[in-house]
Write a protein that binds this DNA or RNA. Structure first.
Length: 562
RNA sequence: UGGGGGAUCGUCUAGGGGCAAGACAUAAGAUUUUGGAUCUUAGAACCCAGGUUCGAUUCCUGGUCCCCCAGCCA
């Protein structure tokens, strides 16, 4: 999976892991974990984390757990759990029998909390959330200690027990770590460890009415699982002192170390859960699997391969500086993969009828086409040729600009795998002037592979035989957002203002070659000269629906722009 | 203005007192029955100012700018 010659340099985390292994600082085997919260679907940013965590485990002969960080009963559910598992597997990673849930540790976690109270490291506070906020101080002013901070151990224990029993309403009490209300690091100003929530948890049901916070559950869960390297994103950097404090005062036997890296941001899209939820809930996209979304589900439906995504994550690298990766890199990764794997096929997106006047009416020829010039093992196929064809509207210009190597009145082009044709006439709608059809002649000596087949013409067009072609719908996708960088920061900006109104274009009158009949949902093709397309599950036997994964590089479009 | 991080081509990512490297993107050319792919080539960067040094992008000092933190979210 990783090609050593391609990227000889190693990121700072792998460097650290290698050094730790060398010095035995964390035992003989590296052990990582991917810890999603089941409150949303995975996106390509998660893919980076998955590739990092599972990748490091693979490379260093260690293990990686899949652990659901499900400590908030009000947001999580089972659908997300199964969706996440499906996505991780699809990406190509395997957690074997190491599927864990923080919720499975609730009893152990509770006992840790009891011990913290017994050792004077935690106390029950009875201030309201609002009061706690005020007491916390500000970024520049120290906080004040709660009046309940010095309750006796006995009283704390009694209160905590009653909290568990459900004797109090939500928010009546909270368990807090007793650290330092004057710490310049706000996370150390007696952070909350447990809160009361009379809510049904999707896994533990009504067993509990108090739930641990992330800050409490995460380090202890890591420790319980024997994690050596707990990799997370930059925003947790100033939680690390708390992470370490908790492990220390809990007197655990395994001390994982937290290492932070920069999360992945992609240009022209959004990555935050909040914004993705907004897009889905406000109906700007069609669900979490919308092919315009950077979710794994969306990318999959769009036609991305796991291989391409893994490759992309490798190229993106791992570092600590904030960055926004250009969509072009992701597109490069999928083109690279599909170029060598996707069978070629001819499809006309905007059909223009061509009548070959000197081709016998009713005659049908079967021509041979190569499935993938990059991979001879994919063999050949047959395609029908006849008197009436469709070509792409863009492939004809009545007044051709300079360097236009396609069809125009009096000019010749080759039809791929067929003959050279010359345009002899243009049929127009007398009212609108719109070009309705082209009259052409073909040169019978120029059949592909024939004696005259070597004759040079400036362009080669794709086409389909009108009477044989299959009608199809094609969905073209463009950037979700008009701005290259708005998804990463900019909370203040209204996402709706940035939406690209042309992110989806549906073409309903496309014509594709007959061999596509019966193609299975999800299969990927290159439509010659156009791009890579993936058969959408919306397809029916009578009506194929394709998603454009990514277009081919288009040199002509660049020339024309100038 | 407290604390924690970060700053290298347009975008990512390496490097680390002595030629600043790779990828994507861009441009030019070769080739081509996909204006695809492939190949070749080119341009393109060390946040700023001082200091140390024969030599600083790297070390030191002082700035500047960017990101994160005041949830009983993660």
């Amino acid at each position: 999976m990783s090609s050593p010659d391609q990227n000889p340099s190693i990121d700072f985390i792998r460097t650290k892991v290698a050094a730790d292994l060398e010095s035995q600082a964390s035992g003989k085997q590296v052990h990582t974990r991917f810890p999603p919260e089941p409150n949303g679907h995975l996106h390509i940013g998660h893919a980076k984390s998955i590739c990092l965590n599972f990748g490091i485990a693979q490379e260093f002969g260690g293990l990686c757990n899949l652990r659901f960080d499900d400590t908030n009963p009000t947001k999580e559910n089972m659908e997300y759990v199964s969706s996440i598992q499906e996505d991780v597997r699809w990406l190509g990673f395997d957690w074997d029998n190491r599927l864990f849930f923080a919720s499975d540790y609730f009893e152990q976690l509770y006992q840790f909390a009891v011990r913290l109270i017994q050792t004077g490291h935690a106390y029950v506070d009875s201030l309201t959330a609002e009061e706690i906020r005020v007491f916390r101080g500000t970024l520049t002013e120290p906080g004040k200690e709660s009046p309940h901070r010095n309750r006796s151990i006995e009283e704390n224990l009694a209160l905590f027990t009653r909290m568990r029993k459900g004797e109090f309403a939500d928010g009546a009490h909270v368990l807090r770590a007793k650290i330092d209300m004057a710490s310049p690091n706000i996370n150390l100003r007696d952070p909350a460890l447990y809160r009361i929530r009379h809510a049904t948890h999707y896994r533990t049901g009504d067993d509990w009415c108090l739930y641990p916070t992330y800050d409490f559950a995460h380090p202890l869960s890591d420790s319980l699982e024997g994690i050596t390297h707990s990799l997370c994103t930059l925003e947790f950097e100033d939680h690390r002192p708390l992470y370490d404090w908790l492990l220390r005062v809990s007197n655990v036997s395994c001390y994982p170390q937290q290492i932070e890296f920069a999360r992945l941001n992609l240009g022209h899209t959004v990555m935050s859960k909040r914004k993705l939820h907004q897009l889905v809930e406000e109906g700007h996209v069609n669900g979490w699997g919308d092919p315009r979304l950077p979710t794994l589900k969306g990318l999959r439906r769009r036609g991305y391969t796991p291989e391409a995504i893994r490759n992309f994550c490798e190229r993106v690298g791992v570092a600590k500086r904030d960055s926004v990766i250009e969509m072009a890199l992701l597109e490069h990764a999928i083109r690279e993969d599909l170029n060598r794997s996707a069978p070629r096929v001819m499809a006309v997106l905007h059909p223009l009828k061509v009548i070959i006047e000197n081709y016998p009416v009713g005659q049908i020829e079967t021509l041979e086409a190569i499935n993938n010039p990059e991979d001879p093992s994919q063999g050949k196929r047959e395609i029908p040729f006849s008197r009436e064809l469709y070509i792409e509207q863009d492939d004809f210009r009545e007044d051709p600009p300079k360097k236009f190597f396609r069809l125009s009145p009096g000019q010749e082009v080759r039809l791929r795998y067929a003959y050279i044709i010359r345009c002899t006439g243009v049929e127009k709608n007398p009212d609108t002037g719109e070009v309705m059809a082209l009259r052409c002649t073909f040169d019978p000596d120029t059949k592909s592979g024939g004696s005259q087949s070597g004759r040079k013409v400036k362009g080669t067009l794709h086409w389909v035989s009108a009477q044989h072609a299959l009608p199809a719908e094609v969905r073209l996708y463009d950037a979700l957002l008009t701005q290259p960088n708005s998804g990463s920061g900019g909370e203040s900006q209204d996402l709706r203002q940035l939406l690209n109104p042309h992110s989806l274009t549906v073409l309903s009158d496309c014509q594709v070659e007959p061999g596509l009949r019966g193609a299975s949902s999800g299969s990927r093709f290159q439509f010659e000269r156009q791009g890579y397309f993936c058969l959408d599950p919306d397809s029916t036997p009578d009506r194929l629906v394709f998603n454009r994964t990514v277009s081919l590089r288009d040199t002509w479009a660049k020339i024309e722009k100038k």
